[in-house]
């Protein structure tokens, strides 16, 4: 059983494993009865570096992968926040534990550019395959980009 720092956010249990502790932690939790991985998402903290809700022994990084697990029997939820550095954005995939994370991990890869090691199909899911960049990163502009469509003849 690995021990990882634990905090509470608005009454919700939050764990802070390191990337290489993630798989073992989730595996343990699954044996405890957390049978469903509800959600996998990520946050880019580039524009908000001084966040205060991390425990003292966790060093903040730019990216954070957030995994939510759910135990139906004990009506418990737990959230895992994993710090991911920008120069090596790799996290172990949870596919072997929860196949349902396949699409969610692809979404995080698509929108944030975080790679999940061991994922069976690490490709873009929402954006076109030839898209460049990861739009939910904070250094990517929201605004309108020129239409990437080239085939339409000028009509008017």
């Amino acid at each position: 059983m690995t021990t990882v720092p634990e905090t509470s956010s608005f009454g919700q249990r939050v764990l802070h494993p390191l990337p290489d502790q993630l798989y073992a932690t989730v595996s343990d939790l699954r044996d405890e009865g957390f049978l469903t991985a509800v959600d996998v998402t990520a946050v880019d903290y580039m524009a908000h570096p001084g966040r205060t809700d991390l425990p003292a022994d966790v060093s903040p990084e730019r990216f954070e992968v957030v995994v939510s697990l759910h135990a139906h029997q004990s009506h418990e939820r737990v959230r895992l926040r994993i710090q991911v550095p920008v120069d090596d954005p790799v996290v172990p995939s949870l596919f072997d534990l929860f196949p349902g994370t396949e699409a969610m991990e692809r979404e995080v890869f698509d929108l944030f550019g975080i790679t999940f090691d061991g994922h069976p199909d690490m490709t873009r899911i929402l954006l076109p395959e030839e898209w460049e960049g990861h739009p939910l990163r904070k250094d990517v502009d929201t605004g309108r980009i020129p239409v990437q469509f080239r085939e339409a003849p000028v009509q008017r």
């Binding site: 509800v38 966040r51 809700d53 939820r77």
Partner: peptide, 21 residues
């Protein structure tokens, strides 16, 4: 106030969650 939270409701299609930071 600063913080992060996940709230789920039962939509007609299943668990609809909102994660806010």
């Amino acid at each position: 106030p600063e913080g992060e939270v996940y709230v789920a409701v039962e939509s007609p299609r299943g668990e609809l969650g909102c994660y806010l930071v």
